[in-house]
């Protein structure tokens, strides 16, 4: 699929949110869309998915089957989980038996079996988000577009998202993901698209580039937000520590990146150390290391 000189604005006299985006993603490729809040990440994803039509330019070679997981699943609907997913499976073109089979498979896989007869408005945000994931996967998509897919998910299901992505990639599909939580460290092989000022640039990975570590001191209450923002900007956060004695307000001169195994996780969740170690060989830009406060 290719976005050719795509421009988009929401109102005739409004500012252009996307300006001349020209990018291509091929079968078996994943791309992470990064950028600050409000720069147009969701807009770009919606153009790619076919939700929005570009004001100028065009989208070519979009796969016939697209799965889109919106940032917020629309749970205000008068259906149970089963009825909704069955309906969406039928809308996607599956026959009755195939729809039932797909719904059973995905509700089991995403841990929704116990919620099948629960009405959508009664679901928690995370469970509703799982329904959003399930509806996108009912028919194997050629393009999977995930807008903040980790939002509200529990730890177990967060681990599932990379598996779903891997499934789509293995079937020669393409995947686009936006993320401001830093969860995309779980996808070390994905391309990284940075959206800023309406334009898109791709971060190229090169192990030959010199890597610098910058230590930053922030108030403990702002650690989570700072970590998320740094990650959204494409930096790698190696660790967070509460050792205030070393929290000097100025940045130290650049130093070489320590070995992958030496890096400590930025958050104490299981598997996080592995994620960081896995992504470090891909690092191409300065690595930032906040030093104050506890992690989330």
């Amino acid at each position: 699929m290719r976005l050719e000189n795509v421009w988009l604005r929401y109102h005739r006299r409004g500012p252009w949110v996307l300006q001349g985006i020209d990018v291509r993603i091929g079968p078996g490729e994943a791309a992470i869309v990064l950028g600050r809040n409000g720069v147009g990440k969701s807009t770009l994803l919606q153009v790619a998915a076919g939700v929005l039509r570009p004001g100028r330019g065009r989208v070519t070679d979009r796969p016939a089957r697209v799965g889109w997981v919106p940032e917020r699943f629309p749970a205000d609907q008068p259906f149970t989980v089963t009825r909704y997913l069955t309906g969406m499976a039928r809308v996607a073109g599956l026959g009755r038996a195939a729809a039932d089979e797909a719904v059973t498979f995905w509700t089991d896989r995403l841990g929704l079996s116990g919620f099948r007869s629960v009405r959508l408005p009664e679901l928690s945000k995370g469970t509703a988000q799982k329904v959003g994931l399930a509806q996108a996967m009912l028919r194997p998509p050629g393009l999977l577009v995930l807008d903040e897919p980790w939002e509200g998910l529990d730890a177990t299901t967060r681990e599932l998202v990379p598996e779903l992505i891997a499934d789509v990639l293995a079937a020669d599909g393409s995947v686009l993901i936006s993320d401001h939580r830093g969860e995309t460290v779980r996808l070390p092989a994905a391309r990284r698209w940075l959206v800023a000022d309406g334009s898109l640039s791709e971060e190229t990975s090169s192990t030959d580039e010199t890597i610098a570590v910058v230590e930053v001191a922030v108030p403990a209450a702002r650690v989570a937000g700072t970590v998320a923002r740094l990650r959204a900007e494409g930096h790698q956060v190696l660790r967070v520590r509460s050792d205030a004695s070393t929290a000097a307000p100025q940045a130290r001169p650049a130093e070489p990146l320590r070995s992958a195994g030496a890096a400590r996780p930025a958050e104490p969740s299981p598997g996080a150390a592995g994620e960081l170690a896995a992504v470090q060989p891909e690092a191409a830009d300065p690595v930032v290391e906040p030093t104050a406060g506890e992690t989330r």
Partner: peptide
């Protein structure tokens, strides 16, 4: 009756 996002999901699924 249909939420806006659900309408867009339907559009992505079946086409404009």
């Amino acid at each position: 009756v249909e939420p806006d996002v659900q309408r867009r999901l339907a559009q992505v699924t079946v086409g404009v």
